[in-house]
Amino acid sequence: MISIRDLRKVYRQGEREVVALDGIDLTVPTGAVHGIIGHSGAGKSTLVRCLTLLDRPTSGSVSIDGSELSTAADRDLLQARRRIGMVFQHANLLDSRTVLGNVAYPLEVTGQDKAGRTARARELLGLVGLEDYEASYPSQLSGGQRQRVGIARALASDPRVLLCDEPTSALDPATTDGILELIRDLSDRLGLTVVVITHEMHVVKKICTSVSLLDQGRIVEGGVLTEVASDLGSRLSAALLPLPEAALDTAGPLVEVLGHGPAADVPVSTVIKDRFGHGVRVLAGSVEDLAGVRFAHHLLALPDGAEGRTDGADAVVAFLEQNGYRAAQRTRTQVETAQGTAQDLGGAQ
């Protein structure tokens, strides 16, 4: 379990103080795959450096499985760091070593004998599917293969926690999915707690069980993926379940509807027609499965003049809410803002 309490990091830039982390509180239970998403400048890199104690936080605490990192003495810090496996954006392998030598490196610094670390490194290369490449040098591998070596290396010291910093941001989409599946699979098989830092919602959707939104050094939204997604109107929901660009050329009121589970399988326009007797136009819609739950997200246009009537927007929203949907009336500006949020967090379609 990872526990972060009121973590703050303030940099001095000449006379100015820059608050990079402004009181982060976060608990990631054992076995969870937690995504931390934010656009550049939100404090992601600083958070990673504070979690691995590459930089000392200004205040606050970071503990892993109950042992406190932020106050550890230098000597204990070496031991503490070995309990965290870290995967970097650019793999950061040693070019002067073979693949096997790279994976064996963490064992070498802890003083394990050569036979032992070679055997363990081979086993790890098997785990990431690169057993045939042990004598290759990193420069001879593709980006995806290098990242697999990076993952094998991160697992060498048998960490309880895997910290992935933008693990797929330098990879093409097909390779990205392969690496994400590997991380998810390893987390399941080895019972690892995984923290993935990313600016791409795709990564969160693909492997995370929970997510936090980092903005200006604070966690502003977060929770279990399916709960966060069904919180209509939140930034994470807008980015997790983005709607395609809609032509907002209708005069009638707009209603945004989100159904999940069984409700997602019933056509919402039919439900409304059955109750109110008039049809609605679907301006945009998307249906997606997140963490095994189906979500149907729609933007509807009610007939012009429906406002204020008993079958107006308020009545439709109230009816939908009573029937297990999340619904809200939206202005055109709100729709556009949500679109912008989705784009900002790499979730736009």
Binding site: L54, I84, M86, F88, N92, L94, Y105, T110
Partner: peptide, 22 residues
Amino acid sequence: PSGTVDAARVMGSTRGQIVRKV
């Protein structure tokens, strides 16, 4: 690259090990 040195630090290398091995 500083990233390579960071990786070595995160893996619990001492300063002497970073100079000699990295």
